[in-house]
Design a protein around this nucleic acid. Structure first.
Length: 877
DNA sequence: CGACCTCGAGCTCC
DNA sequence: CTCGAGGTCG
């Protein structure tokens, strides 16, 4: 925190939430959260007398570094904010001095070089009140003249600023330019601006239809250079000779530039686009009329009139032209479908030019809402196929996969093998021109493992093209599909692609929404057209126009839908400008991020804090920079370590949950405030974004092992007694000699013996796997698996699956049911601990799952063997 | 109309 | 860094 920035002119810009389109609102209506929040906070600060003092003094000795202090929220108060506050307090003081001569002069803790010209600012009642509070406090603290202004002033000043800010004349105010005055210009922002946040600046440029890109290039009209501008960018700027602006000049540009000074080319392009939009809208209207007619003719009472349909269905893409983005993969998909017959005849031997001739199925993957399913349908139709959609997550299709497309089952399979045969599956007719579209493949195998396996087997012999759709193909369970299908990753369509479509729809709906607003919406909705349409259609109910700010408000309402993962949280907390003085988020808001998931976020922070290029060190150069970096990291480590201690108190025996906020700051916010900065850090293992905490990986593995051990124990408890530990330490080595070693030593000869032994103890093949995984020393996993020839392994699996086993609950899914059975039998009396974790006894339905055949044998056996009514845990044998 | 070049953005984790 | 899109030139 010692790299305090130069004193600078105060910011007169409201928090972004309160930028109003027209005149600033009267202050009687304090704007939104920020404002609501701050005053509240101030009060709470003011109420705390003594603590505050400590905080103040400690925040003062930041400069002499190395002093260990208990982490405290206030400490990590942004230095910049402090500065700002200073400035503001100064303002207030000066005002007050001028008017009442009441306030004593401030200790010269900080040199103010910049004297503002806004003393004439009329004090509004609120501001006066705020100033009064400030003044009073000042009087109180006067005895300690060496003290810096108190953090508590921040709130007063912040409030005053938030409310009075936009009105203050002569200060850096957000200028109001002519609409579209930046049209046709391309901006690049670099470095930290003095009063505008990066986002605000970008937003401002976009508000006036400017274009903002990340890297300067020959297309860039202006580069707005702030403090600490990146060196590479500056070099590029110099090399390409791009005009640069300061922030003030940028604001002036907005003020002075009139209208769109577009050159001919741009105008032409605009015209062209407009024409395209209108054409598309016409086409849409025509289509709608047609459909409306059709509907009327049919007189289908049930059909909903198109005009009242949801926009998302109403404007669902009808032709390939309507699809946004992903042009290349969609084209490939079409080619593949068209060539399918040919490839089928040649036995999928010829790769073709794109190499997709050898696949019988494609796997489309990509985030939701970008038209994967629609593309698949449209392309199938276009290629002359009759698409059948199976949604893997709905039970019907699941059954279908299980029962009809199972390779051992003849019904569908007959079709897939016989040429040209016709079959009906679930009331759907299949013929040679059918194309199977499996949606949400990744949601499939959740309930029935082997779903993907069965699907894969189906793919290998299908006689019709199959299009599989999933959201995430990197999942483990999707692995079998990767080699058998052609992967087609779909990406989010770019804003440009979405815009034209949205614009046409809007044109047709007679909604007047400027391009930049649409862009904003698209961006805010992450290019999810459906979401944008939904937002717009609800908006349409009230109005027919939308301003930039209305769009923003609309986005804000909808943005809650986006989920925060620890990754995004860490991104937010340690992003390049996360704690820069232009950042508008309060510390409390940052702490809120921690509370999103307070068991994970600290872990991610701990994983991440060494991987940034701290912005606080970026001022220095050479060795000094490294030193500063080290210093910051060391401080962050200290804080994280403090956080760990606090964590002990929270999660340890004392359960001091009230310490959670402190933990938030110590473990997360403070480190973030120190090391925030560029994430992409070459040379340090590189990588992108926060890594998944290694500890978590190990932890989840441990969790898995421990669950497996519990499994084994529960199964064996029919024969043996003992806690998990006992089983692990005493039975398992013994058992290993009987169920693992024979396979290692004698190979497949020992199979029968081993399986018999496992049956004796009700151990399944899965238990065997777990058993091996749990092994140590001479029984450790790699060693064992290496020693057993793979032929033996597969023979083992085959043989095990071939025979019936006297275990009622050898499937993981049936585990819940199995526990009940054990309870029925009555466990060994000294092992009640296992049953403590029992879920409520599952009801009958769950018990008879899909695997009835499996159960039947064993069920009889077990249930006959014992009296069923013994109460859980109490039964003695 | 096609090939080449240049610009720009997204990439990764659950 | 790599891919795709878009523009320009032959």
């Amino acid at each position: 925190m010692d790299n305090t920035p130069e004193p600078r002119s105060p910011r007169r810009i409201t928090p972004s939430t309160s930028i109003k389109k027209s005149k600033p609102v009267k202050r009687k209506a304090p704007d939104e959260e920020v404002d609501e929040f701050k005053p509240k906070k101030r009060q709470s600060m003011a109420n705390r007398g003594p603590e505050k003092r400590y905080v103040e003094s400690s925040s003062e000795d930041e400069a002499p570094r190395g002093k260990k202090k208990a982490p405290s929220p206030m400490e990590i108060e942004d230095d910049s904010d402090e500065d700002d506050m200073d400035d503001f307090i100064d303002d207030d003081e000066e005002d007050d001095r001028g008017k009442k001569s009441k306030v004593k002069s401030k200790p010269p803790a900080k040199t103010k070089k910049v004297v503002m010209t806004k003393k004439e600012t009329k004090l509004t009642p609120v501001k006066k009140a705020a100033a009064k509070v400030a003044a009073k406090k000042e009087e109180d603290e006067v005895q300690e003249p060496e003290e810096k202004p108190k953090p508590k002033y921040n709130w007063a000043a912040a409030k005053a600023r938030a409310e009075a800010g936009p009105k203050a004349p002569g200060s850096k105010e957000i200028p109001e330019g002519v609409p579209d005055c930046l049209a046709g210009l391309t901006f690049v922002f670099t470095g930290e601006l003095t009063s505008l946040g990066r986002d605000e600046a970008i937003e401002l440029a976009k508000r006036y239809s400017g274009r903002v890109t990340g890297a300067p290039s020959s297309k860039t009209s202006y580069v707005i250079v702030g403090e600490n501008a990146g060196k590479s960018k500056m070099d590029a700027i110099q090399k390409k000779n791009i005009p640069t602006l300061t922030e003030d000049e940028f604001l002036d540009l907005i003020r002075t530039r009139h209208g769109a000074e577009l050159d001919e080319k741009q105008l032409k392009a605009q015209e062209k686009e407009q024409k395209k939009i209108e054409e598309a809208a016409m086409a849409m209207a025509a289509k709608e009329r047609e459909e409306e007619k059709l509907r009327k003719r049919k007189e289908a009472a049930k059909a909903i009139p198109i005009s009242s349909q949801l926009w998302t269905t109403k404007y669902a893409p009808q032709t390939a032209k309507d699809l946004c983005g992903n042009k290349a993969p969609i084209g490939r998909l079409l080619d593949w479908l068209k060539d399918w017959d040919k490839n089928f005849k040649s036995g999928f031997k010829k790769p073709g030019k794109e190499g997709l001739g050898i696949f019988r199925a494609v796997l489309i993957s990509g985030p939701p809402g970008i038209g994967k399913t629609t593309s698949a349908h449209l392309m199938a139709k276009e290629a002359g196929y009759n698409p059948i959609e199976l949604n893997a997550s709905d039970a019907r299709s699941k059954k279908l996969i299980e029962h009809h497309t199972n390779i051992d089952n003849a019904s569908l399979d007959g079709f897939f093998q016989g040429a040209g045969a016709k079959t009906t599956v679930m009331d759907m007719r299949l013929d040679s021109k059918t194309c199977l579209i499996m949606d949400e493949v990744d949601g499939m195998s959740a309930g029935d493992r082997g779903g993907v396996g069965a699907l894969n087997a189906l793919i290998k012999k299908t006689r019709i093209p199959m299009i599989l759709i999933c959201n995430d193909k990197s999942l483990q369970k999707m692995k079998p599909l990767i080699n058998t299908t052609y992967g087609m990753p779909f990406k989010r369509p770019g804003p440009n692609e979405v815009r034209s479509r949205i614009m046409s729809i809007l044109y047709k709906e007679k909604l007047k929404i400027p391009t930049n607003v649409v862009d904003q919406l698209v961006q805010g909705a992450n290019s999810d057209i459906r979401q944008v349409l939904n937002m717009l259609s609800t908006f349409k109910l009230g109005k027919s126009e939308m301003s930039f700010d209305e769009g923003k408000a609309l986005l804000k309402v909808n943005e809650k839908n986006t989920i925060m993962t620890p990754f995004t949280i860490i991104d937010k907390l340690t992003g390049p400008y996360a704690f820069s003085h232009t950042n508008r988020e309060t510390l409390n808001e940052k702490a809120e991020l921690y509370f999103h998931d307070f068991s994970f976020v600290p872990l991610f922070m701990q994983e991440h804090y060494l991987k940034t290029l701290p912005a606080r060190a970026s001022k220095e150069d050479g060795p000094l920079k490294d030193l500063k970096h080290l210093d910051l990291v060391s401080k962050a480590a200290d804080s994280i370590s403090d956080g760990d201690l606090i964590d002990r108190m929270i999660h340890g025996s004392e359960q001091h949950w009230s310490l959670l906020p402190i933990h938030a700051f110590a473990s997360t916010v403070t480190p973030a405030s120190l090391i925030y900065g560029s994430i992409n850090k070459p040379g340090y293992g590189g990588g992108f974004g926060p890594a998944f905490p290694q500890w978590l990986g190990q932890n989840s593995k441990q969790g898995k092992l421990s669950r497996q051990l519990t499994d084994i124990q529960i199964r064996m408890r029919l024969r043996v007694s003992g806690s998990r530990q006992e089983i692990r330490e005493q039975y398992m080595p013994l058992l290993a000699g009987h169920i693992v070693s024979p396979l290692m030593d004698r190979g497949s000869d020992a199979l029968d013996e081993v399986i018999e032994y496992m049956d004796e103890y009700y151990l399944s093949k899965e238990d065997w796997d777990a058993f091996v995984e749990l092994g140590v020393d001479s029984m450790r996993e790699e060693f064992v698996l290496k020693k057993i020839p793979s032929a033996v392994k597969s023979a083992f699996t085959r043989q095990y699956n071939k025979t019936d086993h006297p275990i009622a609950f050898h499937k993981g899914d049936l585990f819940a049911a199995s526990k009940k059975k054990i309870a029925d039998i009555g466990p060994a009396p000294d092992n009640e601990d296992v049953f403590e974790e029992d879920e409520p006894v599952p009801d009958e339905e769950e018990e008879k799952g899909d695997e009835e055949e499996d159960i039947d044998v064993t069920k009889d056996r077990l249930i006959k063997a014992v009296k069923p009514k013994v109460v859980k845990g109490k039964g003695k044998k």
